[in-house]
């Protein structure tokens, strides 16, 4: 199925104007780079053939991974590099590729951090389709190609903070979430958006476990204005390369100001809703996990202190423990979303 290029939907239909204006400010920062792209080759920055050559981070050489499908190749040859300034970039030390791809919480593939890499060999992302449902004018089941290919891929370097009090810095490749969601033309009733992960007993040993208490499929949700925030990102790759299965191939959310479990992996359904959806962890342990799950050093989780975090990788003799920042350091971009809310209640 092919999507016709939809007419531009007015941001005011989805997002309050003030937030939309914020977004413009952001984009201003990277406009110089975009201008360079538009002039095509005249900018010294763009002198090289493929823009991919200017990516801030590349997967280690010698890594041979087959592309999930032929059309991916073209998209990945043409990636907008990350800008030089926050918030779409941070100069903190990147967590190495091997660690980002070998230390994962993806319980569909097992409980241990190494399980997702170990157990995702059978996982197949082609063909992949995504169901778009709920309060949208263009519902339906779309091929991944139809969802991804109209968009320019861009690189973003974000901090990722897990509720388990460890963190990483990861160079993602993807598309602003708002740009994807708008194409399906959410109507004025859409106040929340819910995402679902694939459940496939054949290729996901974790969902076969009789002792797992998650009610699959794994579900996550965002308030519409959160989803439309320019920081919210739909990743299809990392380190300039396709997303490995264990990191949520072929398409996953990245919401850098929230704990990692909000950044749902391997998405097969996007559902626009009037009411706040129930996310899996909140359903499982409501006294421990809320809907918002904003990174907050002042509100501790019953199992993990949240005022510090261990930045990975660490070694046995360097804990690499750093202070956790409010909204994971993205307060300037997102604090206004929660004005007047008691964040110790809405954790």
């Amino acid at each position: 199925m092919l999507i016709k290029r939809p007419a531009d939907i007015k941001p005011s239909e989805i997002t309050p104007e003030s937030i939309y204006r914020n977004r413009r400010q952001f984009l201003g920062a990277s406009s110089t780079l975009m201008l360079g792209a538009a002039l095509g080759g005249t900018s010294p920055l763009m002198a090289q053939d493929a823009r991919g050559d200017q990516l801030k981070a590349r997967a280690p050489a010698g890594l041979t991974r087959s592309e999930p499908a032929a059309w991916w190749g073209d998209k990945f040859d043409n990636i907008q590099p990350a800008p030089d300034a926050e918030p779409f970039f941070t100069d903190e030390t990147l967590t190495p590729y091997d660690d980002v791809t070998a230390y994962n919480n993806f319980y569909e593939f097992g409980m241990d951090k190494g399980d997702p890499k170990r157990n995702s060999g059978e996982f197949n992302v082609d063909p992949w389709s995504v169901e778009i449902a709920g309060e949208v004018d263009k519902p339906g089941t779309y091929n991944l190609e139809d969802i991804v290919s109209p968009h320019q891929l861009e690189e973003r370097i974000y901090r990722l903070r897990c509720v388990e009090a460890w963190s990483m810095v990861i160079p993602w490749i993807g598309i602003p979430l708002a740009d994807i969601l708008k194409r399906f033309e959410p109507n004025s009733n859409a106040r929340f958006v819910e995402f679902e992960t694939l459940v496939d007993e054949d290729t996901m040993p974790g969902v076969r476990s009789r002792f797992a208490i998650i009610d699959w499929p794994y579900r996550e949700g965002l308030r519409m204005d959160e989803a439309m925030n320019p920081l919210a990102f739909m990743a299809v790759g990392l380190y300039g390369d396709y997303l490995p299965s264990q990191n949520g191939a072929p398409m996953r959310l990245v919401v850098p100001w929230k704990y990692g479990f909000k950044s749902i992996k391997s998405i097969v359904k996007i559902n626009f809703l009037r009411e706040q959806p129930i996310n899996s962890w909140n359903e499982l342990q409501p006294q421990e996990y809320g809907f918002y799950a904003n990174v907050n050093p002042n509100v501790h989780h019953p199992r993990w202190r949240q005022d510090t975090e261990r930045r990975l990788p660490q070694t046995l003799f360097s804990q690499n423990r750093i202070r956790t920042q409010m909204f994971n350091g993205y307060g300037e971009q997102v604090a206004h979303l929660y004005e007047g809310m008691d964040l110790s209640r809405y954790y």
């Binding site: 967590t95 660690d99 230390y103 951090k113 190494g114 261990r310 990975l312 990788p313 660490q314 046995l316």
Partner: peptide
């Protein structure tokens, strides 16, 4: 810890 050094990025936890 010392020979294989395969405790991963979070060796303390492991």
């Amino acid at each position: 810890v010392f020979i294989a050094q395969n405790l991963g990025p979070d060796p303390a936890q492991e």
